[in-house]
Each structure stands twice: as structure tokens, then as C-alpha cells.
Amino acid sequence: MKTLTPMLTTICALLAFGCAPADEKNPADDGLSCDASLDSDGDGIDDCSELDLGLDPASDDTDGDGMADGAEIDCGSSPTDIDDTCYQCGWGRNDPGNITPTGAALGDVMENLSLVDQCKETIDTYDFAGEYHILYMTAAF
């Protein structure tokens, strides 16, 4: 019996895993039904994906911050955080949150700057991480 117990445990675990994969989440299992072909609120996210993401499929602006859920996901903003919105000029929020500034010389990681853009909004420069940029400094006159 001592030798059978681990084997039975393994078989049971394998059976359990095969019957109910942990990564196959179905909103219907939570008592909620959905249709992946529908986007009831017209925010660009289908109803099932809304449920998976914890969004309201009947509201195009789940957090009530004035921006549609789909637009917030596209720009990297949280559609469930009223204080997190897309930039007015449409820049993505691409700060990975793990950038550590090292200095101001060539080769250094520059610090995160807060600058006002042409939409008169304060922008964090780390939100432009993930792509190359050429910073061109000049005067308006």
C-alpha cells in the first residue's frame, strides 16, 4: 500500500488535470454566460473577453473615466482604474515599471521626465519606452 499511494496520487492528479485544465477559463463556469461574437457595448472588446478581463460587457466605460474600455486597453491604460486614462494626444502608456535611471551621460538610462506636450498634458517620458526615439531639442522662434 505504501508503494501504491504515490502512484494513485499521480494518476488522480493526471486525471484531474486532463479533465479540468487550469488555464481554460470559461466565464460560463462562473455562472455568467457570454457570446464571443457579440460586443454588446460597442467598445471594441467582445463580451466574453470583457468578462475574462473583469469588465462590464454592458458598459463601454467600465471605470467611468470617460474613455472607452477598448481605447484604454489599446493605449496601455487600465479600463478598471478611474485614475488611469489614455493621454489626450494618443500616446501609449508603455512604462514597464522597472526602468532604473543611472545618469545623464551616454550609455546611461536617463531619468523619467515629466514634460507638457502639445495637448497641454503632462507626459512621463518612460511611457515612450519600448521603442527607439530621436529627441530633437530646438527653440520655437
Binding site: 526602468i99 545623464a104 550609455g107 546611461d108 536617463m110 523619467n112 519606452a129 527607439y132 526615439h133 531639442m137
Partner: peptide
Amino acid sequence: VCVIAPDMSL
């Protein structure tokens, strides 16, 4: 002009 890499290095 400064070139900035994806990791925000100069």
C-alpha cells in the same frame, strides 16, 4: 539631438 534606446538609455 539625442538617440534614446527602448530601455531609455542614451
